[in-house]
Nucleic acid binder design. Structure first.
Lengths: 112, 112
DNA sequence: GGGCCGACCATAGGATGGCTATGGATAGGA
DNA sequence: TCCTATCCATAGCCATCCTATGGTCGGCCC
């Protein structure tokens, strides 16, 4: 309500989703769980961020989806990477590293 | 024009500015130059991002400003950290590290 | 059966924070 | 004189994330 403190670093959600899907198909809810668990609860993916993001990614052709039943017998929309999506993971991962490195250089200037 | 690919990681601009000012007062243009130079041109701070950001930070009481002359005899608005701003740098730096660490755990899962 | 909880999808609406584009002033060098 | 670099600033757009809301359904418990 008061301070809008993002749960995730803006601009990294797509990468987190794509990377998760690179481990195999998952439904939306499962993707969010996975990210939250691997990050030790630091990153929480709100549903209001997640589903629009999934639609974005599908529109761009990086993932595709279809209804299936979960092991617990519930209907769920499963997502998986497309071929271009697989390439995209690598690209975004490199970009991320590059930018974080750059930020670190500003935050921790080495000696002249 | 086509793809809106942010020059900086959204959400990190404030930290970059504050950190730069922690080295001493600077004018806006100088702040942008400093960030761009230290990052080896990876991070480019557009003026349309910079000045609104500076206004934000001043509104929040983390920086204060005043007109001065540059060594090259030009008028410029110099910014410097306030006391709370100085504290804020540390807070944001820790937050940043924490989140980046969390993202890395998702991007590079260690063995179970 | 009835109720609850957790799993699951989805969207509207708002806030934020970036960017592009534009406009302007002036110092100093060619 | 003109140009370039330095310097400030704002409007308006756009993408992304959040809050809030609403809904379905499976399975457990009593």
């Amino acid at each position: 309500m008061a301070r809008t403190k993002s749960d995730i670093l803006p601009g990294t959600l797509d990468l987190l989703i794509l990377k998760t899907l690179s481990l195999g198909p998952r439904h939306g809810y499962g993707i969010a769980q996975h990210i939250q668990r691997l990050s030790d609860d630091v990153l929480k993916v709100e549903e209001g961020s997640l589903y629009p993001a999934l639609q974005r990614l599908e529109l761009r052709g990086w993932i595709k989806s279809g209804w299936r039943l979960t092991p617990t017998n519930r209907r769920a929309r499963y997502y998986e990477l497309t071929r271009t999506g697989t390439r995209q993971v690598g690209t975004e991962e490199r970009d991320f590293d590059r930018v974080v490195e750059a930020i670190r250089r500003v935050l921790t200037p080495r000696e002249a």
